[in-house]
């Protein structure tokens, strides 16, 4: 067992080691303070946070519906709503184009009536990221809702609490570790999103060129810069994962709610 665990650790540590080994440390600051790098970083943080917020706002009700109500075709609906997890991101981007692009099922009417073209905008980046990231939150929250002891909710209801009040004051606090875990997973997926973004939103500095795309493009012109940018993304992700792990996932262990 330990040997296999060791291989797994090595498997994740080696690529990081590779980056550290090849990183041009003496020029790191020059590359990091580069205007284009900062622009891409800011855009990535903004869009991924927006995508996480949208995933929570729409994903929690979706998870609630999938966990609590029974209706024919629920399994198919769940599969539909989590399809983008298994879809190659580029395919997801093409599908989004056919839906929301200028010639898309819905997009053509947006263009015709409001002269609005979603692709090439920062909003399109958020849409692409939300499309691939939300299922991670839905699945996590749905699992927590299913495993939740219904007794406190029933008690609240018999004591006269409305459904919304019960959800807000009883259910939500109970699933908050799972919600946090799902939100972090979604955020991480959104931050790393590449394929759907470049296909659906395009790539332009400041509006649609996120960090992963900047890393990819820099790899062609300036491989050293791409390594530094990649390391910066890793540092940010690592910091978030480590700090949240202690605060929220740790809380889950203590309270005894499995997520």
């Amino acid at each position: 067992m330990l040997a296999f665990a060791g291989v797994a650790v090595l498997f994740f540590a080696l690529p990081l080691l590779g980056l550290l080994w090849r990183a041009p440390w003496s020029k790191a600051w020059t590359y990091l303070s580069d205007h284009d790098s900062l622009t891409a970083l800011r855009l990535s943080l903004q869009t991924s946070l927006w995508a996480t917020a949208l995933s929570i706002v729409f994903g929690v009700p979706l998870a609630w519906m999938l966990a609590r109500s029974t209706f024919p075709g629920r399994s198919a609906l769940r599969a539909l709503c989590t399809l983008s997890m298994v879809l190659p991101p580029v395919v997801g981007g093409v599908a989004l184009l056919f839906a929301l692009g200028r010639r898309g099922v819905v997009g053509q009417w947006l263009y015709r009536w409001f002269d609005y073209q979603l692709p090439y905008t920062t909003a399109a980046v958020v849409v692409a990221q939300t499309f691939v990231a939300m299922p991670f939150l839905v699945i996590t929250v749905e699992a927590a809702l299913r495993q939740l002891d219904r007794a406190p909710e029933d008690a609240a209801r018999t004591l006269g609490a409305s459904r919304w009040y019960t959800f807000r004051r009883v259910t939500l606090p109970a699933i908050s570790p799972a919600l946090a875990a799902g939100a972090v997973l979604s955020w991480a997926r959104a931050l790393g999103e590449f394929g759907a973004t470049i296909t659906f939103a395009g790539s332009y500095p400041g509006t649609t060129q996120t960090m992963p795309i900047a890393v990819y493009l820099a790899r062609e012109t300036n491989p050293e810069q791409s390594i530094i940018l990649a390391l910066l993304m890793i540092v940010i992700s690592f910091a978030v994962l480590v700090s949240l792990r202690d605060r929220w996932f740790g809380a889950a262990d203590r309270v005894g709610v499995s997520s």
Binding site: G101, P119, G202
Partner: peptide, 20 residues
């Protein structure tokens, strides 16, 4: 002022053929 800078020529072609 381009709307997007594609990483390969076929990226430009598909953006035009897709009507985007």
């Amino acid at each position: 002022t381009p709307k997007s800078l594609e990483d390969k020529v076929k990226g430009v072609v598909t953006k035009v053929t897709a009507g985007e």
